[in-house]
Simulated scan of single mutants.
Amino acid sequence: MSTLSLQTPDAEKRTASGPARIFRLLLRDPLATLAFAFLVVVVVCAVAGPFLIGDLIEKPNFRARNMPPFSLEQGFAYILGADTLGRSLLARLVVGARNTLGIATAAVLCSLVIGGTLGLIAGYSRGALGNLIMRATDIVMSFPSLLLALVVLFSLGPSVPNLVLVLAITRIPIYLRTTRAEVLEVRERMFVNAAVALGASHSRLIFRHIAPMVIPTLLTIGAIDFATVVLAESSLSFLGLGIQSPQFTWGSMVATGRGYLANAWWVAFWPGLMILLTTLSLNILSNWWRTYSDPQQRWRLELARRHRK
Rank of each mutant, 00 (worst) to 15 (best):
V254D: 02
I221A: 04
G257R: 02
G257Q: 00
A223T: 12
G240A: 00
R258A: 09
L239M: 13
S237W: 11
L205I: 13
M274L: 15
G251C: 14
H209V: 00
T256Y: 13
S234D: 02
R258L: 03
A268Q: 04
L241H: 08
L239N: 06
S203N: 13
A195L: 01
M190Q: 14
V196L: 12
W265N: 10
H209F: 02
M213I: 01
A264K: 02
I206N: 07
F238S: 13
L236C: 08
P212E: 10
A211E: 07
G222E: 00
P212T: 10
F269G: 11
A195N: 04
T220A: 13
S237E: 09
A200G: 05
F269N: 13
M213E: 15
W265H: 09
A227K: 00
I215V: 15
S252K: 09
L219I: 15
L205G: 08
P212G: 06
T220F: 02
S245A: 14
F248P: 05
L205T: 01
R258F: 07
G240C: 02
A262Q: 15
S203G: 10
F269R: 12
M253Q: 12
H202K: 15
M190Y: 06
R208T: 14
P212A: 09
E233H: 14
L236N: 04
T249I: 12
W265D: 06
V254W: 02
G240W: 06
M213V: 09
R208Y: 08
V254I: 01
V196D: 04
M274C: 14
S234T: 05
L273K: 07
G251P: 08
R204C: 08
M190F: 07
S203V: 15
Q244A: 01
L273G: 07
V267H: 02
S235C: 12
A197P: 06
R258T: 03
V192P: 07
T249Y: 07
S237H: 15
L218F: 08
A223Q: 04
N263F: 15
M253L: 15
I221C: 10
A268L: 01
V230R: 00
A195T: 01
P212N: 10
I206C: 07
G251M: 06
V230P: 01
Q244P: 05
G272W: 13
F226Y: 11
Q244E: 11
I221G: 00
L218Y: 05
R258C: 00
L236Q: 05
Q247Y: 13
S245M: 10
F226I: 05
P271D: 12
G251A: 11
L198M: 12
I215R: 04
W270H: 04
P216E: 09
F207A: 11
R208W: 05
P271Q: 02
S234I: 05
L239H: 03
A200E: 10
L261D: 09
W250F: 10
L239E: 00
A197H: 04
L205C: 09
G242A: 10
G257F: 09
A255R: 03
V214M: 05
S201G: 14
P246A: 03
S234L: 03
S201A: 12
A227C: 08
R204G: 11
I215E: 09
M274P: 03
Y260H: 11
S201W: 07
P216M: 07
M274H: 13
A223H: 04
L205E: 04
A227W: 02
